[in-house]
Design a protein around this nucleic acid. Structure first.
Lengths: 249, 249
DNA sequence: AAATATAATGCATTATTATGCACGTTTTAA
DNA sequence: TTAAAACGTGCATAATAATGCATTATATTT
């Protein structure tokens, strides 16, 4: 049986039930659980299934309402967001990048919190618009549709003129040597500018972003004032960061 | 039974009853109360339930998605939008204002339509981001939360520098003598600028906006190239516009 | 066809997650 | 106020997952 067939077989399983079980599948197809897990990983990366401990679920019709954003690993991101709340101060000027981790964070900000927030992310802006006491400045530009953020010279220009107390930054990848790196060139430039404009830099990242490298460097670890993950700061999975002197939360 | 299934099971319980009981649930699923409590905690952290001594309650309707916009008179607005489609040309540079009439219109634009569109409305931008061939430029500024549009000097400045083929403009009010008028001063300034930047001006308005006056004038009827309503151009309710020489559709 | 590279798979080991139990604390209700 | 019930926490155990490595299968090149 070819891998492709197996993937198809797995997806077909969801016609009968809305979950599949790792072990059952391995037994049924007479292959190892490892292979099933690898299949799950690949299907997950294609956004077709959601992995859970013990099996997998089908990702529900995602295009129902274009406005509702599917947040993968939402529970982990909620933990990150809750920790990050301690870095908020009333009256601050804040720069907020995009991404679903930051979106989860924004959902947790107290409804009457008062601050000035700059963002270039459409979903973040939609979310923060619910907060009556937040003065929200949207940084305009050409919309990059996959990330739902604006890019281009206009964005950089606006950023070059402002000064913020703190920047909450979501990441593509975070590596102990390379620091913060991005997949896209344009976004990397913009994030650099955002960091430049901010006194403090707080990185929000779930553990799956950690120990990965992307082509475009944003900044080194030394420029980051806090790294917030869903893990305990003492977790062995981020021990290398602790050893390198990173401030973990 | 996978954890996620159990969570779903618990949430489904609320379809029958207002409250679920820790012990009952443990008995029914034949697992320990500890596990149920842990489930409650996780569901609570996601904001889905409220824990009480002995069980849990569903968190009411709070879950409604802030991103989904309620469009009043949507049927009328769809009629307006469909008529307005005839003013679209491939490759145009378009300025799109905010409002739910324009939003309905944008939902009707063919998915592969190709153009450059400027907007200052968050919901419009979210909607148009679904169109792969539309180059979308968001005009940044301070967000006015009731209308979900950006305002301020930055918006005016961007508009003063661009030149568009056509502007689709939603209105507060439209009067045969006063022309287009707005409730808010800032938006009136911005709309003036949008009209200035555009060769053609298409007004989209449901009939309830017609024959009303607001404090801030945007432009006279003579500057408007087309008025699109859900009514027939021959309708007696807009005869005064026809008599004044307005181009009705 | 043979040789080589590449991908897929299974196995062993280690890490992570889920669950139940014990025990001390908190809450409820009489 | 007190006793019973419910809760939270730490810990032990079992189940599941991830990782590195060896082996086999498949694809590509010569």
């Amino acid at each position: 049986m070819l891998k492709k067939e197996r993937h198809q077989f797995i997806m077909d399983k969801f016609k009968d039930a809305d979950k599949v079980n790792t072990i059952d599948l391995a037994l049924e197809l007479e292959i190892s659980e490892d292979t099933i897990r690898r299949d799950f990983n690949e299907l997950h990366n294609k956004g077709l299934i959601e992995k859970v401990y013990g099996g997998a679920f089908l990702v529900k019709d995602k295009s129902r309402n274009i406005f509702d954003i599917n947040i993968v690993n939402e529970d982990k991101k909620i933990i990150v967001g809750q920790k990050a709340l301690s870095f908020l101060r009333e009256g601050q000027v804040i720069i907020m990048t995009g991404g679903t981790t930051n979106l989860s964070f924004c959902k947790l900000i107290p409804i009457d919190f008062s601050a000035t927030i700059y963002t270039y992310s459409l979903p973040i802006a939609m979310q923060l618009s619910q907060h009556p006491n937040i003065e929200l400045i949207f940084i305009g530009g050409k919309l990059q549709k996959n990330a739902m953020v604006t890019v281009g010279i206009d964005v950089v220009q606006v950023l070059s003129k402002i000064k913020a107390d703190v920047c909450f930054i979501g990441v593509s990848s975070l590596d102990v040597n390379q620091g913060l790196t991005e997949m896209g060139y344009e976004v990397s430039i913009i994030k650099k500018e955002m960091i430049n404009a901010s006194d403090k830099v707080i990185v929000l990242a779930t553990s799956d972003k950690i120990n990965g490298k992307m082509p475009h460097k944003v900044c080194g670890l030394d420029r980051i004032d806090a790294i917030v993950t869903e893990l305990s700061p003492a977790s062995p999975r981020i021990k290398n960061f602790a050893d390198a002197g990173a401030r973990l939360f």
